[in-house]
Design a protein around this nucleic acid. Structure first.
Lengths: 63, 63
DNA sequence: ACATAATGTCAAGTATATATTACAAAATGT
DNA sequence: ACATTTTGTAATATATACTTGACATTATGT
């Protein structure tokens, strides 16, 4: 399932997938895949993403 | 860094590492390593752990 | 003191998260 | 219309999460 909460949070910060990837130290494809929902990132990456877009784990990754 | 919040939550449910591992569908060693803090589990496993011990991601995996 | 359960840890294997390169298709701005 | 940025999506490669099996150590109960 797509992660629309992440997509929205990223939009709210006016970041492209590439910029967010850069902030998190991962590739753009990884961010793309996470938003698209077809994989299972590590908790450390989730935390890095949360910090970059100013959200918490529960806000972005809890159903 | 050790995850003492997880250790406490597991204790509060009176679950052994092996029992928790079973509930989450992973090996005991994986739970042990996560509590010990030397690795970086996937978000799906974190969510499974949270559900098993009745906590949220922020409660167990946010600093 | 003994038995058993729970935890810590190691080595070798398998599965999968993530990287890299590359290209096509949508958006967006001018 | 054109140019540029952004996004979607492959293929192949590498790092690492997780497994299995095994043994040692520390708790817990009787």
């Amino acid at each position: 399932m797509k992660n629309l909460k992440l997509k929205a949070a990223r939009a709210a910060k006016d970041l492209s997938q590439a910029q967010l990837a850069d902030l998190c130290g991962v590739s753009r494809q990884t961010i793309n895949a996470i938003e698209k929902g077809d994989y299972n990132p590590t908790i450390n990456l989730c935390i890095a993403i949360c910090k970059a877009v100013d959200k918490t784990l529960d806000e972005l990754f809890w159903e």
